[in-house]
Write a protein that binds this DNA or RNA. Structure first.
Lengths: 204, 204
DNA sequence: TTCTTTCTGTGTTGATTGATACAGAATTAA
DNA sequence: TTAATTCTGTATCAATCAACACAGAAAGAA
């Protein structure tokens, strides 16, 4: 504990929350230092002293997002005992999280930085790694369902994971383009019904 | 025809093609005027004289993309007589276009500008409108299949259109994140098999 | 040739970006 | 009090951005 010196005049966690909301709404590149300091209610020297840099602040914001919004989406995946229940809750939680009133539409992990990878390399790689982790999490869940005997042994869990990851990523774009909650739910329910075709049919 | 005055020293269509490739690879915001003039082989006054502005150049590049790459993806949708054939060719053409060697991975319409909508408003709206057009095109194709008796009269063509649009958008992100051609094809084939569940099952 | 028109290359403009220098303010330790 | 430490506010830094001014070059028209 640093008790010496002038105490900080703002709450670090609250400022981080405001930064997360701004990054979520506008993305890393489009959130200027002016935007950030205004949203956080502090001067830029205070921001640098408390968080290090704009990039480090973004990484902390992403961690906060994962620990809060991300948890709402992903925790049910492993909790549900059946693969059908897991995918159902995963997709419906996604639809709900991407259209929550008062929150920016879509996902910070997908929309939070330029997908061209040319902006800040560290920022782009941070999000890309998170997305890859999510694909891996889906893959493990499908593999578990195969091991549990819920799905045939020749089930292509890698393809299913990529499929549902792509669907979720696309839902972010649809949400950001203005799709309402009902549309996102319709996409989710369509994705749920797809699973019934996947676990019975052979590869085309 | 303007025959008077000093003739242009570069081919306008070739320069536009180079600009399209750059925008496709790096997006609007991350393609600086320096990048553009180097890729196009001209000075910035020549660029402004020939295309008006960076934004106008981008809009022309998007039109060129739609007329070439977009055509490869979308023309089969209406040409195929069955809805199964149409969706199959649509998704497989998407997978192929998004992983063509020598071309940037993913789609210019999805990845070409900040999805936060805060960069250049006109540019973001241009792409958003194109994406909305694509959703409408899918919707019309599914509605046609209902009218043809291929799908039940209570089939939710709007949900199906949103579902496949989201899937295609997500494929762009997967491609940009490094997914190879085989993975994109696996996603496409999974999407094709989904259709078999959708045209028989009732809403959940 | 001479005039008019249009394009090209160099150089620059004002605005905005992320990041800091500096001095003063606020706290604890001695 | 006095010294040491840490934060805050102003003011500014160099770099980069898109866009353009200007003069010279290259063509047709007369």
């Amino acid at each position: 504990m640093a008790e010496r010196g002038r105490p900080r005049s703002f709450d670090r966690q609250t400022a981080l929350l405001r930064a997360m909301e701004l990054f979520w709404a506008k993305g890393f590149e489009d959130s200027s230092m002016t935007d950030l300091t205004q949203a956080m209610g502090i001067g830029s020297p205070s921001l640098y002293a408390a968080f290090g840099s704009k990039e480090a602040l973004f990484r902390e914001a992403v961690e906060l997002y994962q620990a809060t919004v991300g948890l709402r989406i992903w925790q049910s995946l492993d909790d549900e005992t059946t693969i059908a229940g897991a995918i159902e809750r995963f997709l419906l939680a996604t639809a709900e999280a991407y259209s929550t009133p008062g929150e920016p539409p879509g996902c910070l992990i997908v929309l939070g930085a330029s997908l061209s990878g040319r902006g800040d390399a560290v920022v782009c790689e941070t999000l890309r790694t998170r997305r890859a982790d999510n694909v891996a999490r889906l893959d493990q869940r499908f593999a578990r369902a195969v091991a549990d005997g819920e799905l045939p042994s020749d089930f292509d869990h890698g393809a299913a994971a990529a499929f549902y990851a792509a669907l979720q990523h696309g839902m972010s774009i649809m949400a950001r383009d203005g799709a309402d909650a009902a549309t996102l739910q319709a996409i989710a329910r369509t994705g749920i019904r797809s699973l019934y075709a996947l676990r019975t049919a052979d590869a085309a």
